[in-house]
Simulated assay, not measured.
Amino acid sequence: MQLTFLGTSAGRPTKERNVTSIALSLPEPLNGFWLFDAGEGTQHRLMGSKLKLNKLEHIFITHLHGDHVYGLPGLLSSRSYFDGAGPLKLFGPSGIRAFVEGVFKLSGTHLAYELDIVEIAPGEIMDDGRFKVEAAELDHRMPCYGYRITEYPQPGQLNLSRLAELGVPPGPLYGKLKHGQDVTLESGGIIHAADVVGPQVPGRIITVLGDTCPCDNAIKLAMDSDLLVHEGTFAPGMEEKARAYGHSTVLQAAQIAALAKVKQLVLTHFSSRFDDHAITTLVEAAREAFPNTVAACDYMDVNIPKPIG
Rank of each mutant, 00 (worst) to 15 (best):
P13C: 08
L26W: 12
P27T: 11
W34T: 10
A38Y: 03
G41V: 04
L51F: 03
L53E: 06
E57T: 14
T62R: 01
H65K: 15
G66H: 06
D67M: 06
L76P: 05
Y81W: 13
D83E: 14
P87V: 11
K89T: 15
A98C: 04
E101V: 12
S107A: 12
G108C: 09
Y113G: 03
E119S: 11
A121H: 08
D127W: 02
G129Y: 13
F131P: 02
A135E: 01
H140C: 10
R141T: 10
P143I: 10
Y147Q: 10
L158T: 08
R162S: 11
V168C: 11
P170N: 06
G175W: 11
K176D: 02
H179I: 05
Q181F: 11
T184D: 08
L185H: 06
A193S: 15
G203K: 09
T207F: 03
V208S: 04
G210K: 05
D211K: 02
D211H: 08
C213L: 10
D216E: 14
V229E: 04
E231Q: 09
T233G: 02
A235R: 06
E240V: 11
H247V: 12
S248M: 14
V250M: 03
Q252I: 00
I256A: 02
L259E: 10
V262G: 05
H269V: 04
R273A: 07
F274A: 05
L282C: 08
E284M: 08
A295E: 00
V302H: 06
P307K: 01
